[in-house]
Amino acid sequence: MAKLDVELTVNGEKHKLKVGSQERLLDTIREQLKLTGTKEGCSVGECGACTVIVDDQAVNSCMVLTAQVDGSEIITVEGLESKSGLHPLQKAFIEKQAVQCGFCTPGMLMSALALLNTNPEPSKEEIKTALEGNLCRCTGYQQIIDAVEMAAEEWGA
């Protein structure tokens, strides 16, 4: 089957790629770009472990064919840390013990980033809505909420 040409900007870097007709954005990120921070937990859009940001929106990368997002800008968990250090969200997740096994963490961070990018002062309910598609079996979510609240404050300051 002929491959399709797509161009993606991932974490600020442009990539020209050839993708299969059944290739999901998740596959491209993990297998072609070797960015394995994005996790596959259910493959059906229910767990959010594969969440990345596509053109400013949190998206389950298992629910999108890569060819559908040709030309898009994508951010993965690997795009959070910069030369100036950890992103406020990452710092807050460490500070608030919002990480246990860490498998849901990349997806949580992406959903939280999409929220704070559009809503820098979210209410607790808005944080919950932003993260409702990210399942976590370890933390019981409380410390994740605490972390997002802390990041929002730090970021705004």
Binding site: G37, T38, V77, E81, G102, T105
Partner: peptide, 21 residues
């Protein structure tokens, strides 16, 4: 003391390698 997790950095940056990685 509520010290920070020693494995948190790897986990918030996507560097931590799990089985499938």
């Amino acid at each position: 003391k509520g010290v920070k997790r020693v494995d948190a950095y790897e986990k918030v940056t996507g560097k931590a390698k799990f089985g499938a990685d």
